[in-house]
């Protein structure tokens, strides 16, 4: 056990997710590598279509066909899990990796009481008798802050409010004490005051259970409050990864900087928001070289030809030629930059 103490809990290396289509193969996640330590919260941010949710889905083995893992490796506690048969992966999911999704209604079965769903999940993964499973389910409901847990045990999902449902989903994810929770936009469907409750709950549970969390969201505010480290994704690739404070305050990658500047904040005098011109390319139109180069104010010739890997950039690691000793090469012509 001591030898494992510093080993990462989850290692993702060179992950590639593809969607074969009639018009060719779309690469939705392209050469993504990161790891998560035990008890760590890794935030994964990016705009819609950046591949953050697909990365999460690949880890829990729930990629929707025709999407498939086309390369790379995913290791959980040293064991490879990306190529397991369905039934084996099903045993890992729930027992060792828990999942929380955006819409709590779709994660719960509307025809069963929440108590029954909890007991069923517990008994699937833990060798407990019915009464012990029930006791554990009640304990979990109390732990996630559901008042009058005994009475709520017999209720159906539709009898819960959105925030309470998400608490039930968190209880479900925690049933078998997993080492890792993949939470995909867990607070996006909730009101701000409820969102704050759910974030506080997730943080508390992770601390107490030493559960690692991969928190996928587009909300930088949530990440800033919750995560230890942040990975920023753009067009299926990792643009930058580093400690949360450094990514938020001293981002290295021009995309991350633009993203942070575009978030309105309560503080400085009302000013014009930083604007990244254009929008993220569609998966069919990812430009050669760095995927961000057509929108990047610093793009040079090298950026349009060679794809940068993550490299040390100040306190974070960024996939940007600005941080290579050889730099970006000659800057592009003005009209190309504007396009």
């Amino acid at each position: 056990m001591t030898s494992l103490a510093n080993a990462p809990l989850l290692e993702v290396s060179h992950l590639r997710v593809e969607f074969p289509t009639r018009r060719g193969t779309l690469v939705a996640v392209d050469d993504v590598s990161f790891d998560i330590a035990p008890g760590e919260v890794l935030g994964v941010v990016g705009e819609s279509g950046a591949g953050k949710s697909l990365t999460g889905a690949a880890i829990i083995g729930l990629l929707e066909p025709p999407g498939r893992i086309a390369g790379g490796e995913i290791r959980l506690e040293g064991e490879r899990i990306d190529n397991l048969p369905y039934e084996k992966m099903r045993r890992i999911r729930g027992a060792r990796i828990g999942a929380i999704f955006q819409d709590p209604l779709t994660s719960l079965n509307p025809l069963y009481t929440v108590g029954r769903q909890l007991v069923e999940t517990i008994q699937t993964h833990l060798p407990l008798a019915a009464s012990a499973a029930r006791a554990r389910a009640l304990e979990l409901l109390k732990e996630v802050g559901i008042p009058a847990a005994e009475a709520r045990f017999e209720h159906y999902p539709h009898q819960f409010s959105g925030g309470m449902r998400q608490r039930v989903v968190i209880a479900l994810a925690l049933c078998a004490n997993p080492r890792l929770i993949v939470a995909d936009e867990p607070t996006t469907a909730l009101d701000v005051s409820i969102q704050a409750q759910i974030i506080a709950l997730l943080k508390k549970l992770c601390r107490e259970h030493r559960t690692a969390v991969m928190l996928v969201t587009h909300d930088m505010g949530v990440i800033a409050e919750t995560a230890d480290r942040v990975a920023v994704m753009y067009a299926g690739r990792l643009a930058e990864i580093g400690p949360v404070r450094d990514v938020v305050k001293q981002a290295a990658h021009p995309y991350t900087r633009g993203l942070m500047g575009s978030i309105p904040s309560i503080g400085e005098r009302s000013h014009r928001l930083t604007q990244i011109e254009g929008s993220m390319p569609r998966l069919t139109e990812i430009p050669p070289g760095c995927a961000f180069n057509p929108r990047c104010p610093h793009a040079g010739q090298r950026c349009t030809r060679e794809r940068p890997d993550l490299m040390p950039a100040g306190r974070t690691r960024a996939a940007c030629w600005l941080y290579d000793p050889q730099g970006v090469g000659a800057p592009l012509r003005a009209e190309t930059v504007d396009a």
Binding site: D219, E225, R245
Partner: peptide
């Protein structure tokens, strides 16, 4: 005040806030 307390803010990295109880 409660609403303003709940805004997740970029400056608040690692902040521990006391969320309000209850729902609408």
């Amino acid at each position: 005040r409660m609403l303003l307390d709940t805004i997740p803010d970029l400056e608040m990295t690692g902040r521990r806030r006391a969320p309000v109880a209850g729902e609408v």
